[in-house]
Each structure stands twice: as C-alpha cells, then as structure tokens.
Design a protein around this nucleic acid. Structure first.
Lengths: 197, 197
DNA sequence: TGACTTTCGGACTGCATGGTCCGACTATGG
DNA sequence: CCATAGTCGGACCATGCAGTCCGAAAGTCA
C-alpha cells in the first residue's frame, strides 16, 4: 500500500474509532489526512465504503500482529499466553484512556443489521479471532478437564472481551475492564485439571 | 405520555435498533410514525437528541418490566432467576432473528466517545442493571462460596451478555448466543458452594 | 524533450439533514 | 359562539454529504 493511501486509512481509523463510521464524513477524513479535497480522496478510494473495509482490514491486521501474536508465542505456556493476551487488551484500552474501544465491536454494533458487506467481514474477523483462541485451547488440552468445548469457549472469551471493552468505554474507568478480565481468566482456570495448575 | 409522542418513540426505537442512531434520520421516524412532516415532529420533540434520550429511557423501562423483573420474582430461587433472566435475553434475541441486539450496547458503541449526554445516560443504565444483579447475588449469598465480589460479577455478567448479543447479531445464529449463555451460567455456578446445588 | 502516468486541486452536483416559521385545522371549555 | 390550546401541514433554511468532472502540476521514462 502506498503512503498516501495508508495515511488516509490511518486518519480514518482514528476518526471512525471515536465517532463511528456513519458520523465520520469523507471530509473529516480529508482534513485529518491533509488531502486537498474530495477528488484527491476519490483518487485513492472508490467510495467511503471501500475506505471502511480497508479500515476494518487494517485494524484486524494490526490486531493480529500485536494482539493475537501473543497467543502463538512458542516459549510460553498456552494458558499463560491467553492471560497475557487478555492483559494486553486491558493495557491497550488503558493507554487510550478508555476511548475508541474495539473497532470490530463498534462497527458491528453500528452496521451489522444495516449493511451486509460489513456484517460479513466482521463475522470473518470474529471467526479468525476465535480460531486463534481455539488453537491455543487445543494446545492446552492436556491441562484442561475433559469435555471442554474449545469452539464455544473461544466465543465466550471474545464476547466477554468485547462487552468489557464497551462497558469500560461507557464508564471511562479501566478498573471495570480489569475486573472483568480477571474474572474471565478465572473462568478459564475453572477448566484446568486439579493438580495441573 | 400521550399517544402521538409514544407512537413516535416506538417508531424511532425500531429504526434506531436496526440502523443505529446516526443513520436514523428524523425524516425516517416521521415516515414510520405516520406524521405529516418536520414541524409535526418538532411539535412533540425539541430535537433529535431529545428523541434519542426518550428512546433510551423507554427501552430501559421495558427492559426493567420484562427482563429485570425476572430477577426479583419472590417465589423462585435467586440463582434460578438469574438463569431465567439470561434465558429470556436469548429468547428475545431469537424472536428477533438476531436483529437489533441490545439498545444499550448499540448506542454505547456508537455514541460513547462522541456524545457525553448519551454516554452518561447509558452508564446509568448499566449501573442500574448491575445493581439489580448485585441484589440478586446478595440474596443468593448463603449458597455462594466466600469471597464472591457481587459488584464485579454483576458487571462480568452484563459484559458477557452484551458481547453475546453483539456477536450473535453478526453471526445471525442464535446458537452462538445460546452457547455463551450456557457458559455464563456455568461461570456463576462455579461459585456455588459444594453441597449447595 | 515529449509522451505518458500519477498525483493533486477546484468547482460542481443532487440530495439529505436537523431544524424554523407561520398558518390552517381541530378540540376544548366557558 | 368565541377564545384558547393543541395538532397538523407546507414551505423554507443553511449546511452537510458522497460523489463527479476536468484540468493543472509533478513524476517517470525512453
């Protein structure tokens, strides 16, 4: 991706994360990326929708590099990795003073029923996220009690994290998310075999 | 509240739940409530914002009457009530074919960072919801192990439910929410004293 | 240098948006 | 009946919105 296009996506990412997709106008993005005007923008993107898709893609790429990568660290115990991953989301949220929240959850809430293209792409994001957690849980299998449904648990984890992000955004208090994160980790550890802790 | 005003709020509630607040125009609401035009609408509401607040208030009132009331049913065991409450949200979501989701979570995702008025009102909604669950957990105290932090747990429950609602909306499959709901109930039952089940 | 490509810039389009102003019509009560 | 209050309706306002069209400027390459 060339520089100007990336610049536009970066500006849009920040704006959309704070205001939402619909309340972020193309003119807003133009102003924040230092473009001269509409035709400049439309040289790089066919439409606002295309920009939105790109913002979503880039957000998930970044999330994969910085967040989900923790789930795949080979030298750390799987369940410790999961804990670190959860902590990383809390840290990230704290660093942003509880603003912005999750790009995926925000877009989902705003667009899921009204825009099939976005709904499908966000579904894919959640699926990929879930499969990463599933793999980790599969790897941790010897330490977990029998009967753990990894697919189900991975979706539980994501739901709780998305909800926690949302609520801390409303409350503007990272302690809320910290508490939920701690309980989520406890939920996972309820499934660890006795004597395997 | 008089009939016309209620009619407008009802129409707005449906529209906002599917499209979001920003993507629902006053003209949309006018068309769906059978008003003649803008001035008719502005006779009843000072602004779109006032309508939005009213939609939020009404949504929480309804939630309180139909959902949270389950948490206060005197003839049923507290933890059973909690399970019934969780099930009621799943049933409600299924009845809507996974559309709409939570009015509170949706509005939060869309408006929390960008509109302080909405953020504060939604915060209040979550607080009231949490205090209902806290009361129930307090009542269930003899059956729970020592050290249960009711405030924290109530927020965990809400976060997970909000996240589950959101994800099932994206997936358009109620089985997803059913799985998360089942795990949420299990999370609560992990805190029940042995021999008290 | 000239032809072509890429990037940038300005003016414009048609429509949508939240909201205003004023008057007509209907309902109410003395 | 008349005055008042409530409801309804139409035209309008200023601005915002996503997107189009065309040309100018800058970059690239033979």
């Amino acid at each position: 991706m060339n520089n100007r296009r990336a610049q536009i996506v970066d500006a849009a990412t920040v704006l959309i994360s704070e205001r939402g997709y619909q309340s972020t106008s193309v003119d807003d993005v133009i102003r924040h990326s230092g473009l001269s005007g509409k035709s400049h923008f439309y040289h790089y993107f066919k439409s606002k929708e295309e920009l939105g898709y790109e913002v979503l893609n880039r957000s998930f790429e970044r999330f994969t590099e910085r967040g989900l990568a923790i789930l795949r660290e080979p030298m750390i115990d799987p369940l410790d990795r999961l804990g670190l991953f959860i902590d990383s989301l809390v840290t990230s949220m704290a660093a942003r003073n509880c603003k912005g929240g999750s790009p995926f959850g925000n877009l989902a809430a705003e667009m899921a029923d009204a825009h099939e293209g976005f709904r499908a792409k966000i579904d894919l994001v959640f699926e990929r996220w879930a499969s990463q957690i599933q793999s980790l849980l599969w790897e941790a299998r010897p330490r977990l009690v029998d009967g753990v449904d990894a697919a189900r648990m991975s979706r539980f984890i994501i739901a709780t994290l998305e909800g926690a992000t949302l609520m801390s955004r409303v409350k503007k208090d990272i302690a809320l998310m910290e508490g939920i994160a701690a309980d989520l980790k406890r939920f996972v550890f309820f499934h660890v075999r006795e004597g395997a802790q």
